[in-house]
Computed example of a mutant assay.
Amino acid sequence: MASLVTKSKRRKKREGMKAYSQDLRERVLRAVDRGCPRTEIVRLFGISRASIKRYIKQRRENGPRGEKKPTAFQQMRWFLLMKLAPTLP
């Protein structure tokens, strides 16, 4: 019975976590780009160093505007559609 209560409390904790706003993420990344030390960014914005690392990684993987790169399947699909388009009635 005690384990059920513990699991329930853990779930509530996870549900209570909210994502930071996109504006805050952009301000953090601008501070990183300006060369501001991570400890200063943590103090100014009240976020963790892990969040800073995550934002940098997401920008590197998804581009500066947050657009995800197309997968190999999506690229192949687009290529085939463009090749076949002229032959369609």
Rank of each mutant, 00 (worst) to 15 (best):
R27E: 14
Q22H: 07
G66Y: 05
W78C: 00
A31H: 06
G35W: 03
Y20C: 09
T6A: 02
R54M: 08
K9A: 08
A85T: 08
G35Q: 04
F79I: 04
I41C: 06
C36K: 09
F45G: 10
A50M: 12
V42I: 07
I41P: 07
F45P: 09
V42E: 04
D23P: 00
I52D: 01
R38V: 08
S21I: 05
R30Y: 00
K69Y: 12
K7T: 02
R38N: 14
P37L: 00
E67A: 15
R25T: 08
L84K: 05
R60Q: 14
N62L: 11
A50L: 10
S21W: 04
L24Q: 03
S48G: 10
R43N: 13
T87G: 01
R49A: 14
I41S: 08
S8H: 11
P89E: 11
A19V: 08
G66C: 02
P37E: 02
M82E: 15
Y20S: 07
L84N: 01
L44Q: 10
R27T: 04
R34K: 08
M1R: 12
K18T: 10
N62W: 00
K83V: 12
E15Q: 12
K69L: 07
K9G: 06
G46F: 01
R38P: 02
R59G: 03
G63M: 09
Y55P: 01
K18S: 06
A31C: 05
K12G: 15
L88C: 08
L88V: 09
D23S: 10
M82L: 14
R77Y: 10
F73L: 15
F45L: 02
G66L: 03
S48K: 04
M1W: 00
V28F: 15
Y55R: 08
R14D: 07
R27Q: 09
K18R: 12
K12H: 07
I52K: 02
N62H: 06
F73T: 13
M1C: 04
L29D: 02
M76V: 15
R59F: 00
S48F: 06
R54T: 01
R59I: 00
L81R: 11
S8Y: 10
R77H: 06
S51V: 02
L81M: 15
S21F: 01
E40M: 04
L4M: 13
S51I: 06
I47Y: 04
G63T: 03
G16S: 13
R77I: 00
L24T: 01
T71S: 14
M17S: 09
Q74P: 00
R10L: 05
L80A: 00
